[in-house]
Simulated scan of single mutants.
Amino acid sequence: MRAPLGHFDNAVPAPDRLDLLTPPVADAVRAWQGDVPAEQLVYVDTDPAIADTAVFAEHYGTELLDQSANCVVVAGKRGGETTLAACVVLSRTRVDVNGAVRRQLGARKASFASMDTAVGETGMEYGGITPIGLPANWPLLIDSAVLDTEWILIGSGSRRGKLIVPGKSLASLPGAVILAGLGI
Score class of each variant (00 low, 15 high):
Gly157Ala: 09
Asp52Glu: 14
Pro166Leu: 02
Ala57Tyr: 04
Cys87Val: 01
Pro15Arg: 06
Pro37Ala: 04
Ser156Ala: 15
Ile184Tyr: 13
Val44Glu: 07
Gly34Asp: 09
Trp32Lys: 02
Ile178Cys: 09
Pro37His: 00
Arg17Met: 10
Thr83Cys: 04
Val74Leu: 13
Leu179His: 12
Pro139Phe: 06
Ile178Asp: 05
Val97Ala: 02
Gly99Glu: 10
Thr82Phe: 10
Trp138Asp: 10
Met124Asn: 09
Arg108His: 05
Val165Ser: 04
Ser91Tyr: 01
Ala171Gly: 02
Val88Glu: 06
Lys77Gly: 05
Ser156Val: 01
Asn10Thr: 12
Leu163Asp: 05
Lys168Val: 13
Ala3Thr: 04
Leu182Gly: 05
Ala113Arg: 10
Thr83Lys: 05
Ala145Cys: 07
Arg160Tyr: 06
His59Gln: 10
Ala107Val: 02
Met1Cys: 01
Val119Lys: 14
Ala49His: 07
Leu182Tyr: 11
Ser91Leu: 03
Leu5Cys: 00
Gly80Trp: 12
Leu147Thr: 01
Thr93Asp: 15
Val97Lys: 06
Pro139Met: 06
Ala14Asn: 04
Ala14Met: 03
Ser144Tyr: 05
Ala38Glu: 05
Asp52Gln: 14
Gly167Pro: 05
Pro48Lys: 07
Leu170Ala: 04
Gly175Pro: 09
Pro23Asn: 11
Thr93Ile: 03
Met124Pro: 07
Pro15Gly: 04
Gln104Asp: 09
Ser114Gln: 13
Leu21Tyr: 13
Leu147Trp: 03
Asp96Phe: 01
Asn70Arg: 08
Gly133Gln: 13
Pro4Thr: 03
Arg2Ala: 07
Thr83Ser: 00
Ala57Asn: 02
Pro174Met: 06
Ala49Gly: 04
Arg94Asp: 02
Val165Ile: 06
Ser172Gln: 02
Ala11Gly: 10
Ser111Ile: 03
Ile164Val: 15
Gly157Lys: 11
Asp66Met: 11
Ala49Val: 02
Asp27Tyr: 00
Val89Gly: 07
Gly80Ile: 13
Gly183Asn: 11
Leu20Ser: 11
Leu134Thr: 00
Asp16Thr: 13
Gly167Arg: 07
Glu121Trp: 13
Ser91Val: 06
Val101Leu: 11
Lys77Glu: 15
Ala31Trp: 06
Ala26Phe: 11
Gly161Arg: 09
Leu182Arg: 10
Asp16Glu: 15
Ser111Cys: 08
Gly34Tyr: 12
Val89Leu: 07
Pro135Ile: 08
Arg92Phe: 13
Asp66Asn: 14
His7Ser: 05
Gly99His: 14
Val36Lys: 05
Gly181Pro: 13
Ile184Thr: 10
Ala86Asn: 08
Phe112Ser: 00
Met124Ile: 15
Asp116Tyr: 13
Leu140Asn: 06
Ile132Arg: 05
Pro24Thr: 10
